[in-house]
Write a protein that binds this DNA or RNA. Structure first.
Lengths: 192, 192, 192, 192
DNA sequence: AATGAATGAGAATTCATTCAT
DNA sequence: AATGAATGAATTCTCATTCAT
């Protein structure tokens, strides 16, 4: 079953997400990605420069989706800041609940490679964290809390839930996860 | 150039932590670990069965240290539960602030390999999470909060701080990190 | 320097026979087989799973050629049994006189690996020996001779001649070897 | 259980025969030979120059035993030549029936290494074959038979029986083997 | 653009041998 | 002589990448 031409770029990307999720980047074979995508091994290199470029592209897509969604939220200045925070979490969750494999790639590979590449990926991440920090502060952190650090706590907490939730054996639903995150955020932002 | 058997086992283990931290497990070369440890390449295999076994051993050590410390805490039933929670965080932080490289290996490799191996490592982690969950519940979570999920939030938050803090460019100190974590925990466990 | 796919499979197989013959299996380097075959080292593994698989394949080919030839002979029920026996010897000789290297691999490696693998190779050998035993009995062994043991004597005798004859310094010709074998067989099967 | 000093040489040799028989020379590990011999790995090198030297020594011993026995037989000019031939076979059989492992090493490794070394081992073999050839001719080969070739047939036949007989699953006894060999020799040497 | 056979650099691992004790 | 930990050269096999078709 050959893909419609023009779809190959996407087919390869999706296959890569799946294979990277299953075996990890290091163990993933380009030949397998090609097979999963339904194209020839060599074709992968018509669309991407290298195996690493494939991963890079996955993260680029991921971040641009997320940051697009978040920048839309940021414009909604009429929405109360507490609700903006909740919607932000929802947006992040939405991205990964669509695609469990992407979630697994994200939790396993992102931080290592972001560190190695030091480029636009790190920029995206910083943008994201700044936005998260600002939103937290808008929502009003409890007394003594420092937004520049709490942003990492919140990010880490959400990241871990995504991690758990991407595991097929995860005992709780996405909805429960979301509820608990919102509980935590409310605790942290309820005035003193 | 024969070398007398000063503790090669330990030297190799430490070298491995450093090299895994710097390059990631997949990119790390056994030959480099050996060079860093100051031994011949082949000597690594006198002490460890394989590169993977080396990583496994690192995690085993890490968990047994942490769980030892925590089980001591668990016995201090006279300590108020809120304080036990704080000491637990301190114990975890202590382990990684001794050894930034270990922290980097932990955040980059642990969850992937725990998943792959499915063995004692996963058991250690479950034990740890159970302890964390119980301690959280003892400390009294806010209304609506579910200890079986909140434990992951807390773990993720702490993990992320360790991650940040292991980065040489991290803008905050370990003490600040600790303070912020404790703030968060207090928020989450203050009776409404 | 890419090379067009003239029969690489065969080229590698022949190179392997030559290198195994010259150095013995254990000393033979895959890199050298590849060089002799005129392909890249890695190409060997496009056609064979391992160095051992290469040897296995050599023996498979050898036995299937021999057994094919023999099963054709077996059908010639009109031919007197004594002559069938002689033709059998001729068929075996033919296989190895075509290819001295194969003869050397056969005498040096076959029995060791047949023992180790315990699979189809041993089956081929048993089939061969059964055929030889039956043909000997048809031809009428001398009084007191037991076909189930004499088959090994005959096989060993022929094998040794092949061995000697594969040596470049061998003082006798293939024709002389054949004559002497037939003499021996006639002695053993002449009714007294 | 440490060996009595002075016995180590022999213990190592015997262990080597066993290990070479079990795994083949190439697969045999010096460390294992040492363990089987009950000595330290390094001790092997106090008695033998190398793993190859160990094998060489095994074959030296083997041939000197055999040739000693045969040269004694050769002196018994009063014994009829036919009987001398039979006794010769008995002497060879005796050597290997004492030590099945030696038999396996002999059939698997001897000819390959004799070829490689081209030294005294080949001389021993030639001496042996000359003796065998002469004895065959003394016993009176059938018309048309050429002793210079028939010696190889006889040698190959005996070698193969030894081979079969060294296999634990061998279906016939040493006595049966001997009987059948003698039958064959009688056929070949009975005046036309 | 598409293909997939061919390439060859690279790495983990083994193990005969050495040598400090 | 005896030991066995240490050595490092050597080899199999892998796989990202290329390129002739």
């Amino acid at each position: 079953m050959r893909q419609k031409s023009g779809d190959k770029h996407t087919a390869i990307l999706q296959a890569a997400v799946k294979v990277f999720a299953d075996q990890g980047f290091a163990e993933a074979k380009v030949a397998r990605i090609a097979r999963v995508a339904g194209v020839a091994t060599g074709s992968v290199y018509n669309y991407f420069d290298s195996k690493e470029a494939l991963l890079h592209s996955i993260f680029q897509n991921m971040w641009s989706h997320i940051l697009d969604a978040l920048s839309q939220l940021a414009e909604q200045q009429d929405v109360p800041s507490t609700q903006r925070l909740e919607r932000m979490v929802d947006a992040v969750f939405a991205r990964f609940s669509d695609d469990t494999n992407l979630a697994r790639v994200f939790v396993n590979e992102q931080s290592f490679w972001m560190h190695r590449w030091e480029g636009d990926l790190a920029d995206h991440f910083r943008t994201f964290m700044d936005l998260l920090g600002r939103t937290l502060e808008d929502a009003g952190l409890c007394k003594g809390m420092d937004g520049s650090i709490q942003r990492y706590l919140v990010f880490g907490a959400v990241r871990q839930l995504i991690h758990q939730w991407a595991d097929p054996a995860c005992p709780f639903t996405k909805e429960e996860a979301r509820t608990q995150i919102l509980h935590m955020l409310r605790c942290m932002t309820s005035k003193e």
